[in-house]
Amino acid sequence: MDWGYDNDLFGNGWNIEKMKKLFLFIPLIIVIMITIFCLVFLLQGKDPSKPPSALLYKNLPELNMISLFDASDVISNKDLNGNIMLINFFASWCAPCKVEHPLFFEIKKNYPNILLVGINYKDKQEEAINYLNTMGNPYDYVGVDNKGLIGLELGVFGLPETFIVNSKGIITYKHLGPLTKKIITNEVTPFIQ
């Protein structure tokens, strides 16, 4: 804005002309900053439909679930601690789960020291057992989460979801959606070695 011939606005010698010139640079600076942020965001390959997990680097919440196969067998964190764990939420009604299912056998083969924990989410026991009988059961433990309460604790909102927990019980990785060979090689393996 042009303030006219009276340049000494604050009465202490601050030249209004200089101030005006400075203001003129602001839009350019903002444009450059916006470009940088957006460029970094794009180059990092972030997926806007997949928010990062809120539980990263936090302790695994207490999972108290009964086994899918034996209702009297209760699985809790005590049973699982001390190992690197891969937790996979699945269900018999979930189509993408079927696609990623075979990959777990490979993981189990390549990394035998990892504990593979499957959590059957909002499913029926019969159908889940059928599913595992047909597709095979790669999991060391399979827990039941009928009402989705365990999923709620972990921020699950759509199947399949996979978490990796390190030997100290801290969640180190989360993946939304089905796993693929590429994702396993690039993203998952660093955490399970």
Binding site: F37, F41, K46, P52
Partner: peptide, 10 residues
């Protein structure tokens, strides 16, 4: 966008 670039939280 800015926050996610700086802190990896959405």
């Amino acid at each position: 966008i800015i926050i996610e670039v700086l802190t990896n939280k959405r």
